[in-house]
């Protein structure tokens, strides 16, 4: 039992990463019918921006001789990096996708792949091939809860992720922008007739998704402090799987599927040798998809593409 709970904690942590990234995929897919394959790399960019911001704040604080507590530096890093990364998302939408709004979907898909490659190699050109260490802002302390070892970092990662997901859910349910996003997911072409500027809503969707990916990147950096330019690729694929498994445009679906992925991976590794982890985990997910080809939830939508 203790063994089970120990793995549960780990699964929650990995699920948090996947779910946060999957949300950005899912929102863009739901609203613009577009797979943003650059999204995994936005996660990477977010982690690097987080690295830069954290290093910058630390340097500034020591330069000005202000004693900023490390937790405050981390909170500031998350907020500022989310903000900055959202502009990367807006730029990707504006330069990469908006010109292709009416183009065949395949063109938009390769655009994502190309932007991904540009972000990876751009990072390489900018910072060189050596890996970057995310500053260790919080000391790890471990708590023993009835035999289950939990670190403060894991608790923080899961709590911050859940808070962000809850905030997103409230935003989409309660604000007029969220309402416009849901309307676009249902019937994109009619939305301008409501006086809603769809370009603004599209840009906002990219901004929010990118901000969440940045948060995931920083939280990942806190847990696993070595960053490299290609770290977003596998994360991107897996989060994409979670987004589709969750159902088209469903926030709840993407969140649950993200956590499910974390659970399956961790529990497979608990039973089988860890080298077989992804082999078995993704075979299981393939099987789930065979039974639920539309994913778990999936928002309804009108299939009419013209007015």
């Amino acid at each position: 039992m203790v063994f089970f709970f120990q793995n549960l904690v780990n699964a929650l942590q990995w699920g948090s990463f996947y779910a946060l990234i999957a949300l950005g995929y899912s929102m863009v897919y739901g609203i613009l019918m577009l797979f943003n394959f650059a999204h995994g790399d936005i996660f990477m960019v977010g982690a690097y921006i987080g690295f830069g911001v954290a290093t910058g704040i630390t340097a500034l604080a020591s330069f000005g001789a202000i004693a900023l507590p490390n937790w405050l530096i981390l909170v500031l890093t998350i907020i500022i990096s989310m903000f900055l990364t959202s502009f990367v998302g807006i730029l990707v939408e504006r330069l990469g996708y908006r010109p292709l709004r009416e183009a065949p979907r395949a063109s938009a898909a390769i655009t994502g792949l190309m932007i991904g490659i540009i972000l990876e190699t751009g990072n390489l050109a900018l910072l060189g091939a050596k890996r970057v260490r995310f500053p260790s802002l919080i000391e790890t302390s471990t708590y023993n809860i009835g035999g289950v070892f939990v670190t403060n970092k894991k608790i923080m990662i899961v709590v911050v992720s859940l808070l962000l997901m809850f905030a997103l859910h409230q935003f989409v349910r309660r604000t007029k922008w969220g309402m416009a996003m849901r309307a676009m997911a249902f019937d994109y072409v009619v939305v301008p007739l409501m006086g809603v500027p769809i370009n603004t809503i599209a840009a906002m969707t990219f901004a929010i998704g990118s901000a969440l990916a940045a948060a995931a990147g920083i939280l990942f950096g806190v847990a696993y402090p070595v960053l490299d330019p290609y770290m977003g690729i596998v994360f991107g694929w897996k989060a994409f799987v979670a987004a589709i498994l969750g159902g088209r445009g469903s926030i709840l679906g993407a969140t649950l599927a993200g956590f499910l992925l974390g659970f399956i991976e961790i529990f497979v590794a608990m039973i089988f040798p860890s080298t077989l982890r992804d082999l078995i985990a993704y075979s299981i997910i393939l099987l789930i998809l065979a039974f639920r080809p539309h994913g778990f939830f999936g928002e309804p939508y009108s299939a009419r593409l013209r007015l």
Partner: peptide, 10 residues
């Protein structure tokens, strides 16, 4: 518009 095009999910 023709066919009303309400947002059925709202």
């Amino acid at each position: 518009p023709e066919g009303r095009r309400l947002f059925g999910n709202l």
